[in-house]
């Protein structure tokens, strides 16, 4: 079960960060009608913290075995890649329009 849990950590973390940034965006737009510099900065910080969380996980995740691919580590890379790619629009996209 622990191994299965380790496999799920990476994608779950992506999902949590994705929902957090998406939710934050909705909240900011609903409250202020525009994502100004500080609003965007908050979103970027949340995104950055999310990306940074993968670092210790990748560093300390025990190596897997029993297969040609180390699935828990692969899960972390999947989560990291998805976090970077799906949320990069916080850097460039127009805000609440």
């Amino acid at each position: 079960m622990k191994w299965l849990g380790a496999v799920l950590i990476g994608p779950t973390l992506w999902f949590a960060i994705f929902l957090a940034v998406y939710g934050l965006h909705g909240l900011i737009c609903a409250q202020w009608g525009v994502v100004d510099f500080s609003g965007r900065a908050v979103m970027i910080v949340v995104w950055g913290i999310g990306v940074a969380l993968f670092w210790p996980l990748l560093r300390y995740m025990p190596a897997g075995h029993a297969c040609s691919i180390d699935l828990p580590r692969a899960g972390l890379w999947i989560g990291l890649g998805a976090t970077v790619f799906t949320l990069f629009p916080v850097l460039i996209a127009s805000s609440c329009s």
Partner: peptide
């Protein structure tokens, strides 16, 4: 070919499909 890669792809699909 690529049993482990396919399992990783399943994992990715399961999660990404909810985004």
């Amino acid at each position: 070919l690529g049993y482990g890669a396919i399992v990783a792809a399943i994992l990715a699909l399961v999660f990404l499909s909810f985004g």
